[in-house]
Amino acid sequence: MSMTQEAQPWQAPEHDKPVEQVEGYNFAYLDEQTKRMIRRAILKGVAIPGYQVPFGSREMPLPYGWGTGGMQVTAAVIGENDTLKVIDQGADDTTNAVNIRRFFAKTAGVATTEKTSDASLIQTRHRIPEKPLTDDQILIYQVPIPEPLRWVEPRETETRKMHALEEYGVMHVSLYESIARFGRITTAYNYPVQVNGRYIMAPSPIPKFDNPKMHQMAALQLFGAGREKRIYAVPPYTDVKSLDFEDHPFTIQSWEENCALCGADDSYLDEVITDDAGGKMYVCSDSDYCAERREAGHVGDQGEPQTPAQKGAAE
């Protein structure tokens, strides 16, 4: 390949072109009886914040672990007028996100977007968008292991009883053991929270950086675990407290670097290896947040100016 080859304008790859709604499926894939059952579970989840409601999880046309729980919740909630955004680790353009977005464009014919502020429903795998969500939005999490006590007690019969009796001492013991061994709580993601002062809940494997965003969030938060067959919820404006100790208060990750593309110092950064000689850069995990900042004129250490004025200045 010639080094002098001129840069081509970016074009969406074939798999990311807009799709037409396909015929032969019910709206949003699931049948109506299944949706009713899921909807009833969601409503009880909202009424009992942080409690995991069992539901009859269906087989979806993709494997467990790819967001079947989140998709079933989305399918039960979504309507013709919704605009759907799907993110995977903060990015709109990764395989999981692209496929789920196309799935609902095909089976429900709904509008999709990559812009956080344009979306009425956001299905997410392992991140909360950096931009604060609003009253009009619903955030739907894909959850692999919904039971926060599962790592300390493998039996469902026992964890169910522990939740019933609010018997959560063992959870604090496990955090204490981490402090005794390493001098700090080493849990960096899926960091357990207590909802409305009652149920201990797994926030799904979001980085603990995102935990404070769950507290008193304006948007409704729904959680779906397909393989484990559980749905749970956090209503808007609800207390969500990350577990900690007085002498070891909860802290979030921070970086010495800023985003290399947009210069953000307040977002969750991914480390990207750029060569095999130890080269690396840190970039925003939330691709829409980063793109919006760059469009607004922010430039990081390795970013390129986006607006015509800045390009002119650079030349």
Partner: peptide
């Protein structure tokens, strides 16, 4: 129109229950 109308009613109730 059972599909879209039951979704509409559910969202009404979901909004009501969440707020």
């Amino acid at each position: 129109d059972p599909v879209s109308q039951s979704q509409l009613v559910f969202r009404c109730l979901l909004d009501a229950m969440a707020r």
